[in-house]
């Protein structure tokens, strides 16, 4: 029984402290080079735990370290430095497991 409780506690604690996840839409990305260039620039950003591109959908999935929020201005700059254009950013909440749901979306307009 105590093992089940400990496992549940561990699971909840993982969820509570897991990093925020974002889906960033990028324009101009149309080859493996482009994709990796964007991944590299995003991974260099402070607080980013991982960044993975899905080329077909032109979306970069960004996971942040615990408790760190991804500033929109910074991700825009990183994508511009890679040579591409920022389109929009969408927040995915509760990324502790595979049950995250999509949150607010910004198209980058003021």
């Amino acid at each position: 029984m105590k093992y089940i409780v400990a496992s549940l506690l561990l699971l909840f604690s993982t969820s509570a402290f897991a990093g925020n996840q974002y889906l960033v839409k990028v324009e101009g990305m149309s080859c493996p080079f482009c994709a990796h260039g964007v991944e590299k620039k995003v991974k260099e950003m402070k607080g980013v735990a991982s960044a993975e591109v899905d080329l077909k959908s032109s979306i970069v999935s960004v996971k942040m370290q615990d408790g760190i929020i991804l500033p929109e201005a910074d991700i825009k700059q990183a994508i511009a430095d890679a040579g591409f254009s920022f389109k929009s950013i969408e927040t995915v909440k509760n990324t502790g497991g595979d049950h995250g749901h999509k949150g607010e979306k910004s198209d980058g307009q003021p």
Partner: peptide, 19 residues
Amino acid sequence: NIASAAPITFNTALPVAKG
């Protein structure tokens, strides 16, 4: 690190990101 498609017989279109 990676490279991209670009022409084979000329170099002026080689893509390179900032830094």
